[in-house]
């Protein structure tokens, strides 16, 4: 894959280069869809719809992207806002975790380590959505606290306290992680 994100963004903004935008989508689709699948509690179809919407919003807003943050952080911010807006219009039962889809996804994606992953997934989904997002970006995507704060438009202190409180809860939920 040629060109880093900044160069691709510049090509899209300067010349409406759709090939460059296609590269950006291909590069970021998997982590972004994974992120939204976690937030939608395993609802792959809804997550993919939201991811598409996020990319389309990103395309429209690219001229306003200043490059102060990483493109991926900016993209996650759009995706997270899109998810929150979509969530507001839904009934609580629509946002419940889809157990069947999740089990199938875990079986497909991580056959070997499915048991532990499932425990962690189950524990994570008991956290508030914002904490799930913070955990996914920090531990799953390897973002720094600062990058997570930028991605979710949260104060740095909120990110740190979400991680600390979330960890406390996860320790309670994951009692079988003895000796850890």
């Amino acid at each position: 894959m040629s060109g880093d994100d900044a160069a691709l963004v510049a090509r899209v903004v300067a010349a409406d280069d759709r090939a460059a935008f296609e590269l950006l989508v291909r590069r970021h689709q998997s982590p972004l869809r994974n992120f939204l699948r976690r937030l939608t509690r395993g609802n792959a179809a809804r997550a993919d719809d939201l991811a598409q919407e996020a990319f389309i919003k990103a395309y429209a807003a690219l001229p306003s992207f200043r490059g102060a943050a990483k493109f991926s952080s900016w993209l996650y911010r759009i995706a997270y806002t899109t998810f929150l807006n979509d969530n507001r219009g839904r009934r609580a039962d629509e946002t419940e975790f889809d157990e069947a889809q999740h089990s199938a996804a875990v079986a497909d994606d991580a056959a070997g380590a499915a048991d532990d992953a499932t425990d962690l997934e189950r524990a994570l989904r008991r956290l508030p959505v914002r904490q799930q997002a913070v955990f996914d970006l920090h531990y799953g995507k390897g973002m720094t606290h600062f990058e997570v704060a930028a991605s979710l438009e949260l104060p740095l202190g909120t990110v740190k306290s979400d991680l600390a409180r979330g960890q406390e809860k996860l320790r309670e939920f994951l009692e079988d992680w003895e000796g850890v």
Partner: peptide
């Protein structure tokens, strides 16, 4: 351990027409 397992769960998703759909 949490980081290890969350990253392990982060399996690459096959594009499978997703990008074409966006474009």
């Amino acid at each position: 351990r949490m980081e290890r397992e969350l990253r392990a769960a982060e399996k690459p998703l096959v594009d499978d027409g997703f990008t074409e759909g966006v474009l």
